[in-house]
Design a protein around this nucleic acid. Structure first.
Lengths: 225, 225
DNA sequence: ACAAAAGTGTTTTCCATACACCCATGT
DNA sequence: ACATGGGTGTATGGAAAACACTTTTGT
């Protein structure tokens, strides 16, 4: 009855020049030596699941909680998903701004941000977990303000639109997006500042608002065509 | 590292005369003797999480998989959520048609369908799990055809509308609901049959269609007013 | 002056609502 | 005939898509 190990694995997503990227680590030891895997680790004996996820996030990125977004994704517990024994993993999804900070000085020496598309054959059942994390992120942009988690503390409407376009992989009309984003109650809070030294007219800066859901939602273009 | 027990708990929802109900069991043994709790049990050493949930569902209701709907809800693992030791539970959400079959002959002798509203002080952290299950169900009716899981194999549009009204707790316009439900592609498949012996004009019978998501969604009345 | 990007206005189209109305059955 | 619930048609208001246009900066 008590023979289970419980782990936490993280699908950490951010947006970089290459598009939507996930943080992956290259495994050194068996099982799956040399393969890319999601970062993660075992839950400690007196640690809550959420606390273990926050700890892993900090170990991998140096981020203090409060930046970005962290939520539980799902649990995976096939009896033979880990050849070492019976390991149930609780996966978490993290949405993060592009970190100028390096990923170093930790046990994540072999970590790298890699585009989520065109990735296959991760260790364990991590392909499936990564795919479900990406799909969760895509869906959640529609009806929550989580796209702001990919941005820094202050951002422009155009930056926010770029987040949507990258995650959804589809272009959006800048004018209609602007109107919709700025008119949806609680989505954005103007800081009063503007950008400087960029080409074109300066853009107003915003922080994320206090809404937890977007109503009405920002629906992505019809997936069925 | 291997000192965890893993359990599966079920939020089983159905619609009865009293409204939206969950199956609860009254605990006989400590901890929490005499308190209502979600049905559940430990995952077996060589059993997948989903398989454990299917097994529990069958033990409690006698249902074979395929009826209704079963999905993972989330995992809960606070170090002291169970006084007996370190137990991580994986909660599942089941949506079921109203079962004429009794809930008997099993270890669920003290099980009962109880309205989800006005319930507090379940054992363990089950209040929270139940609340999250109900909210998941409410949200999923919007953009998936899962309302059909509450109905029998064949049902009328009015029965389906009653499901929405019960789960959302709000009245819907019968005419507009009818048009929307029958025109949303893949939601419903007409069987050709009709009801008989009821008051009023006979209603056409439908089965659930093959769509997995509803596009566009059936949005519930604005929660913000 | 021109290019570039931000932001606004306007038109059209679509969809949700509201509700009048007809249909098919039981009593 | 009438009540009851199933199902269709239609007017209207509001939001989304499409796009012309103005604003404000850098070069």
């Amino acid at each position: 009855m008590d023979g289970f190990a419980v782990a936490v694995d993280l699908v950490m997503l951010t947006i970089r020049d290459e598009g939507l990227c996930a943080l992956l680590v290259r495994r050194g030891l068996p099982p799956y030596p040399g393969r890319w895997a999601l970062p993660g680790g075992f839950v400690r004996p007196d640690e809550d699941l959420d606390a273990a996820a926050v700890r892993e996030l900090r170990e991998e990125t140096g981020m203090d909680a409060g930046t970005g977004h962290l939520e539980q994704l799902g649990s995976y517990g096939h009896p033979r998903r880990d050849p070492r024994g019976r390991v149930v993993t609780v996966a978490y999804l993290a949405l993060l701004p592009d970190l100028p900070a390096p990923v170093a000085g930790t046990d994540a020496a072999h970590a790298a941000w890699r585009p989520v598309d065109g990735h296959r054959r991760l260790a364990f059942d991590h392909d499936r977990i990564l795919a479900e994390g990406v799909e969760r992120a895509r869906a959640k942009l529609e009806y929550t303000p989580l796209a702001t988690a990919f941005c820094g503390p202050e951002f422009t409407v155009a930056e926010l639109r770029a987040v949507y376009e990258t995650v959804w992989g589809a272009p959006l009309d800048p004018r209609n997006f602007h109107r919709k984003a700025t008119s949806t109650d609680g989505f954005l809070a103007a800081t009063g500042g503007t950008t400087e030294g960029e080409r074109g007219r300066p853009a107003r800066l915003y922080r994320r608002g206090d809404a937890t859901v977007l109503y009405p939602p920002l629906l992505r273009p019809d997936p069925a065509g």
